[in-house]
């Protein structure tokens, strides 16, 4: 192997092959993916996934900017791929279409915190508990989730009375008498985003299980 050109050509060929395999072919396979359009039980035409509301889309930016993805994944792995579904993190595996409208796809690579692909579903009919962002350990004992107090404002209670949005805090997190802790716009956006995370919609490539196990542990 004394000749530069042989080396050069060999390397270029290898790199072009790899590029074709992991950039061009995936683009060909996934680039034209469209939302799934179906008719629901009430006869209405529904399209999945739908674009997020403005507030939730802005919340996705807050989620990205704080680096939440370092601890939280958003991918439920198939039933034979671990305990994700048994754990109640989702009713079916996550597929490519679920992330179709994400401006930045944040699948995550380490589960220091729980998977959030269906966090909105786990909330049920409750609204997002904002106190979870201010003081996570007050909601989940021993939580190692980093609190984000900078998304909240501590201010004196106004003469018109306490804000309806003020957090109900416990223990050391309680603000001094006469003050209250209220969420800022970014906290509400992040809450809207987290509440919007739900993927339990039947897709041709990812059917929902026929019988739901009501006793599935959370």
């Amino acid at each position: 192997m004394n000749h530069g050109p042989v080396l050069f050509l060999g390397l270029v060929t290898t790199l072009v092959a790899s590029w074709t395999g992991f950039v061009a072919l995936p683009h060909r396979q996934l680039g034209a993916l469209q939302p799934d359009v179906s008719t629901n039980a009430a006869g209405a035409v529904v399209s999945y996934p739908a674009a997020r509301s403005g507030e939730a889309a802005q919340g996705a930016e807050v989620y990205r900017s704080l680096g939440c993805v370092a601890c939280h994944t958003q991918q439920v792995r198939p039933e034979n791929g671990g305990g994700d579904i048994a754990r109640g993190w989702g009713k079916r595996r996550t597929v490519a279409r679920d992330h179709l409208f994400d401006a930045t796809v944040l699948l995550g690579g380490n589960r220091l915190g729980p998977d959030l692909a269906n966090y909105g579903e786990r909330l049920g009919t409750n609204s997002f508990p904002l106190v979870r962002l201010y003081d996570p350990s007050s909601v989940a004992t021993n939580s190692t989730c980093a609190p984000v107090p900078f998304l909240f404002e501590q201010r004196p209670i106004r003469s018109s009375g306490p804000s309806p949005e003020a957090l109900v805090l416990k223990g050391t997190a309680v603000p001094p008498a006469g003050s209250e802790v209220v969420p800022t716009l970014r906290a509400r956006q992040l809450a809207a985003y987290l509440s919007s995370l739900r993927t339990s919609v039947e897709l041709p490539e990812a059917p929902l299980p026929l019988v739901e196990d009501a006793n599935a542990p959370k």
């Binding site: 704080l66 680096g67 939440c68 993805v69 370092a70 601890c71 220091l112 996570p136 350990s137 939580s143 190692t144 989730c145 980093a146 609190p147 984000v148 107090p149 900078f150």
Partner: peptide
């Protein structure tokens, strides 16, 4: 910060995710 989540928690610049990246 992985095991001391309250460390410097009030500073947005040093969230765990940002420090890690």
């Amino acid at each position: 910060k992985q095991h001391q989540p309250w460390l410097l928690a009030s500073c947005e610049w040093v969230t765990y995710g940002r420090l890690d990246a």
